[in-house]
Computed example of a mutant assay.
Amino acid sequence: MSHTTVNCITPFLPAKDFDLSLRFYKDLGFIEVAKIDNAVRLEMNGNSFWLQDYYIEEWANNTMLCLYLDDLAAWWKDVKAINIAENYEGKAKVFAEPHGQEGGQMMQIGDPAGVLWHIREGN
C-alpha cells in the first residue's frame, strides 16, 4: 500500500432540527465554510465537520466527538455566555461542567440532536 499525507478527516453529524443545530454551532464559534443541498461544513481553527439535515435517533445518540483545546476555562466562559440551557429549546445540554478526569480537565455538552462532545484541555 502506498502512503500519502492525510490532510483531514471530516465527520458528518446529524441534525434533527437543522436550523437550531446550525445556530448552536455558530454560537459556539464555528463558521460556515461550504454548503451543499442538505449540509454545511463548519470550521473552527482549521478543524471542521459537516452538519447535515439528516437524523436517525440511534445514530445521533451514539455519536461522540472529542474536542481538544488549549484553554478549557476560556471555552467554558464562552459556553456559559450562550446559555445553552435556555437558548436551544431545552434540546442542547451541558452534561458536565469542567472537572478533573484522567489527569486533565474536561467537560461534556450535547448538541440539539443528541451528539455528545467531550471537550478536553490538552491534545
Rank of each mutant, 00 (worst) to 15 (best):
W75A: 15
R120G: 08
V33F: 03
V6D: 00
E89W: 01
T5H: 06
I82N: 04
L20H: 01
L28M: 12
D37L: 06
P11A: 00
L13A: 05
A39R: 03
E89F: 02
D19H: 06
G103S: 12
D78M: 13
Q108R: 14
T4A: 07
M1H: 04
K77P: 02
N7M: 01
L116N: 10
H99F: 13
E102W: 14
A15C: 03
E97P: 05
E32A: 04
A39N: 02
K26G: 01
W50T: 06
L28N: 06
K80T: 10
E97V: 15
W75G: 03
F95R: 13
L65F: 07
I84L: 01
I119T: 05
M64S: 13
N45W: 05
S21R: 03
T10V: 11
N61M: 01
L67F: 12
W50H: 10
K35M: 05
W50A: 02
W59N: 12
L22Q: 02
L28A: 04
K91V: 00
N45K: 11
R41K: 12
H99C: 12
L65S: 09
A74Q: 14
P98F: 06
L22A: 03
S21A: 10
T4V: 10
A96E: 13
G103F: 12
I36H: 04
R41S: 08
G100E: 15
A85P: 09
F49T: 09
L69V: 15
G114P: 01
D27W: 03
G110F: 05
D27E: 13
V94D: 08
M44I: 10
M106V: 10
E86N: 15
Q101N: 13
I9V: 13
A81Q: 11
K16H: 07
L72S: 09
S2F: 01
E57L: 08
K77Q: 15
H99V: 12
M44A: 11
K35C: 07
H118I: 05
W50R: 05
K93M: 14
D111S: 09
C8T: 06
R120N: 09
K26P: 01
A15S: 13
P112M: 00
V40D: 00
R23Y: 01
T5L: 09
P14E: 04
M1E: 04
R23G: 02
R120S: 09
I36M: 05
Q105C: 08
T63M: 08
N7L: 05
G114W: 02
G100K: 14
W59L: 14
A15K: 01
D78P: 04
M64E: 14
K35H: 11
E102H: 14
K93L: 15
V6H: 00
S21V: 04
K93V: 12
A34N: 10
M106N: 11
K26L: 06
T63K: 00
D70C: 07
V33G: 04
R41A: 08
